[in-house]
Design a protein around this nucleic acid. Structure first.
Lengths: 204, 204
DNA sequence: CTAATTTTGAACCATTCAGTTATATATTGG
DNA sequence: CCAATATATAACTGAATGGTTCAAAATTAG
């Protein structure tokens, strides 16, 4: 059997690459992009300065990796929250609940890296990435609404695209209020209310 | 008649104080708090470095004045958009339309200083100010909903407080999407749709 | 016209910061 | 044990940054 976990030649690294990126996420999340210095990253990631440049590149490169890894994790969790429940009502409510819970997690900065930090980064690639993430989030919701139509949870003339967007807007609003300190309990109640509202059929 | 605009003693200022603050608003709005250097403010406000420190204080003090002036202006405009129309529908739609229009203004940075920039400022006074602003915005909307009840536009069991919060959340979501480049036309359509939705009575 | 007062412009200083370099250290291969 | 390789530690460098100082300029009071 081929040992493809063969140790590389030189001195082994004293840090774990993905672990260091996770720590970098917290650094950016709590201080914002411009507020972070290389020394903040060195301290927060537990990686020496030269190693940091050698392995990850400069601040911008680190942020891009952090952002993409974060988006992947959060996207997967959100999709799970959205697609696991049977009923459409539980799906939408679960999606919004997840948004609130992850924005009010203990031990982590409040809010959300993608909604509260990344939009301020003045970088074309970051902006493009955000736009595509927003679009795919809305697309996921739209698909769930369509499944709700075929399952008979909502009428066939339900405005799926618009309501999908509205749900993402709600999530954004809830996340921002989390960031400025609105307590989880309050937000969770609103999330449920929003889920009910957004499922109402077209006209009264 | 008493000339209370009597010129002060020494050399007259070469800049207008409130005008300089307006310019500072644009600087913070486009670059974010941490991204702004004193030199950015010196250049953007048209005020010399020593004068800037003498008249306004340091970056934090300038930002606080900027934020409060901005909140006053925007708050007044939003209140006008909300309270001018006769029908509740036009009020809510007007409020959301104003949010979109001011977040997509040409010649100004996209988004909103209070929603997109200020929440990231790691400062207790800023956070307190934001929380109270958010609360008074929601209170204004709630009052408008109550007036709608007395006018017979919505039923008496309409969940005024919750819907007021939902409207502000929508506004936040729309504003953030404006910031990352969603076109005004798209957002305006969504704003109208959201206004309709949020006015639906409690149950189907 | 002169003295007092205030703002302005330029230069200045200590500090912080991004990115690099040089040297020491840990590991594998032979 | 020695050469080769890769990482870690610490120190270094030039540029940017926040904040101050000081002489020159513009104005009013007398």
């Amino acid at each position: 059997m081929i040992q493809n976990t063969a140790r590389p030649r030189g001195r082994p690294r004293s840090f774990d690459e993905t672990g260091a990126l996770q720590k970098a996420t917290q650094v950016f999340w709590s201080k914002g992009y411009d507020g972070v210095t290389i020394d903040d990253l060195v301290a927060g990631m537990g990686v020496g300065r030269p190693s940091l440049y050698a392995v990850f590149g400069d601040k911008r490169a680190i942020f891009l990796r952090v952002l993409k890894a974060y988006a992947e994790r959060k996207g997967a969790s959100a999709a799970k929250a959205l697609l696991s429940p049977q009923s459409l009502r539980d799906s939408i409510a679960g999606f919004l609940r997840y948004a609130v819970e992850s924005a009010t997690e203990k031990g982590s900065a409040r809010g959300c890296l993608m909604m509260c930090v990344a939009p301020l980064v003045n970088d074309a690639e970051v902006q493009r990435f955000l736009q595509s993430s927003v679009a795919s989030g809305a697309a996921l919701l739209e698909r769930r609404f369509r499944d709700g139509i075929t399952a008979g949870d909502i009428p066939t003339d339900f405005p799926v695209a618009m309501r999908a967007i509205l749900v993402t807007d709600f999530a954004r609003g809830l996340t921002m209020r989390a960031q400025i300190g609105t307590p989880r309990k309050t937000l969770l109640k609103e999330a449920q209310e929003a889920a009910d509202l957004v499922l109402q059929p077209r006209r009264v």
